[in-house]
Amino acid sequence: MKKQQGKGLLALLGIGAGVFAWWKYKNLSPEQKEELHGKVNEVGQRVKDTYTEVESTVKTKLDELKTGAKKEVSDIQEEVNAMKN
């Protein structure tokens, strides 16, 4: 029962924060709204750039691991073949 009360209170606080944010935005001047839009767009672009950078790094590391694994498999196969002969 306590968990449900906590979740309900948290939901109520979230709704209250949303209404407050909407009210604050509604009462901003056009210049302030434009400034806010600029900040949001800037943060969005930074997030996108960071995502692209991380994605590129992960792909590079994955390719390196694949190449290394293929080389190891090849080396092991060569050793097995050498032992058979």
Score class of each variant (00 low, 15 high):
Gly6Phe: 14
Gly6His: 13
Lys7Asp: 08
Gly8Phe: 10
Leu12Asp: 12
Leu13Ser: 05
Leu13Met: 12
Leu13Cys: 08
Gly14Ala: 08
Ile15Leu: 15
Gly16Thr: 04
Ala17Lys: 03
Ala17Cys: 05
Gly18Thr: 04
Trp22Tyr: 11
Trp23Gly: 00
Trp23Phe: 13
Tyr25Met: 02
Lys26Leu: 00
Asn27Phe: 06
Asn27Trp: 05
Asn27Tyr: 04
Ser29Leu: 05
Pro30His: 02
Glu31Ala: 09
Gln32Asp: 03
Lys33Trp: 03
Glu35Cys: 00
Glu35Leu: 09
His37Arg: 15
His37Ala: 13
Gly38Arg: 11
Glu42Gln: 11
Val43Pro: 07
Gln45Val: 06
Arg46Thr: 06
Asp49Val: 06
Thr50Glu: 13
Val54Ala: 03
Glu55Asn: 13
Thr57Cys: 03
Thr57Trp: 15
Thr57Asp: 11
Thr57Asn: 14
Val58Leu: 06
Val58Glu: 01
Lys61Tyr: 09
Leu62His: 11
Asp63Leu: 07
Glu64Phe: 12
Glu64Asp: 13
Leu65Lys: 12
Leu65Gly: 08
Leu65His: 13
Lys66Asp: 09
Lys66Gln: 10
Thr67Ala: 15
Gly68Ser: 12
Lys70Gln: 11
Lys70Pro: 03
Lys71Arg: 14
Lys71Met: 07
Lys71Trp: 08
Lys71Gln: 14
Glu72Asn: 08
Val73Phe: 13
Ser74Thr: 10
Asp75Ser: 03
Ile76Ala: 11
Ile76Arg: 14
Ile76Phe: 09
Gln77Glu: 09
Glu78Gln: 14
Val80Ala: 13
Val80Tyr: 14
Ala82Leu: 05
Met83Glu: 10
Asn85Leu: 05
